[in-house]
Design a protein around this nucleic acid. Structure first.
Lengths: 205, 205
DNA sequence: TACTTTGTTGGTCACTTGACCAACTTGGAG
DNA sequence: CTCCAAGTTGGTCAAGTGACCAACAAAGTA
């Protein structure tokens, strides 16, 4: 009889659940499938989680946090704003390309939580995306020596809108070249809303 | 005993299934739920559809065609390109606002079909969206007396990317004002890629 | 009318699912 | 060592599921 700390067992179960939902979608997220994936008896799940719904909640929350974390780690290294945006969005689409079913699962979970009484979860998730996007935009502007001429929150929202749309578009037809062309259009459009830093800006800072 | 033509019964069942999936999500799309919603005995479903999967396929295809039709009916009446895009995208977001769970269902079905062996369905659906978007862009340009200076297919893709992203964003936080601001940014950006018609253009036509 | 085809119905079967539990095992406290 | 709380396990249960079918009814056909 393996004796495992509750917390570790909880994490193992959530990890197994994520593998299950990635492989087979939300519909495949049954207690038995998760237990089998984790190599645990069925009862273990109900010892850790009060109900299946609580398990799904935990999975959704972990995914949400993982996504937020991943978003915050990104850094845009290019010198110009346009190049930075192209590189960043391009890298993101290639992440989707490398594991489409994972992104599919993330979306399914978000929609699933939004449908239940968990509208907040999706709201938080997207709010996290936007916060990260805002940070990236700020950082890229500093590096490029420019200032944004539109409200940063609006621009960040625009960036997330683009990422979501690119994701769905790529999942639909898998056309990477087309995605890159869309990214180019978008990066150029966003770069429009910058102006070089003036002495006044530096002083204000 | 109601005796109904097969075709009509098929349509009634699909309509009932759409109501069910709109109300409760893909997970609620069971044969019994659909039969109850349609007011038919359970066996009727298996007389019309060979399997539950075939029913779901039919539902997905109908939704896909409905969406394509709805997209083609849209017309952009404003005079300038920018106004036309603002109005069109604004109207779309308000459509989502009026029935968010329906849009949720459409997305769920698309992702569900993409996960199974029905990648083509989602590909066709998005392809239809883009074709409609391309038509709208052409029409709006003619009305405004301008020409697009970028590839129309790329611009159409960009438009669909925006609509998808706006949809997810609105579903996440329901912020209509923010969506409108994003739309304004986007419309201005797309309008950049036009130039007035010259005599040469008219001659070429 | 008699007969065939098509449509309809309620019920049943095998199976999966989430929830639950009683028995058992382990590790630590006294 | 003894005992107890925490952890673990296999099994069971009721509910719900998709599929299927035999019996029946309504139209069409000869």
């Amino acid at each position: 009889m393996r004796r495992i700390p509750v917390e570790q067992r909880r994490e193992e179960l959530i990890a197994a659940a994520i593998r299950v939902v990635t492989r087979g979608g939300v519909g495949a997220l049954t207690t038995r499938a998760v237990a089998a994936e984790a190599g645990m008896p069925l009862g273990a799940i109900h010892y850790i989680f009060a109900s299946q719904d609580e398990l799904i909640r935990a999975v959704t929350d972990v995914i949400r946090d993982e996504e937020r974390l991943a978003a915050e780690v990104v850094s845009l290294e290019a010198q110009t704003i346009e190049d930075a945006l192209c590189a960043g969005l391009g890298a993101y689409v290639r992440l989707v390309e490398s594991d489409p079913t994972k992104e599919l699962a993330v979306l399914e979970l978000a929609l699933h939580s939004r449908r239940g009484d968990r509208h907040d979860t999706m709201r938080d998730q997207w709010s996290g995306y936007r916060a990260a996007a805002r940070g990236l935009l700020e950082q890229a502007a500093v590096r490029a020596g420019v200032t944004w001429t539109l409200d940063l929150d609006d621009l960040a929202r625009m960036l997330i809108v683009a990422m979501d749309g690119l994701t769905l578009g790529y999942l639909a037809d898998g056309d990477l070249d087309a995605a890159d062309r869309a990214i180019a259009i978008l990066a150029a459009a966003l770069a429009t809303h910058t102006r070089p830093l003036t002495a006044e800006d530096v002083h204000a800072h």
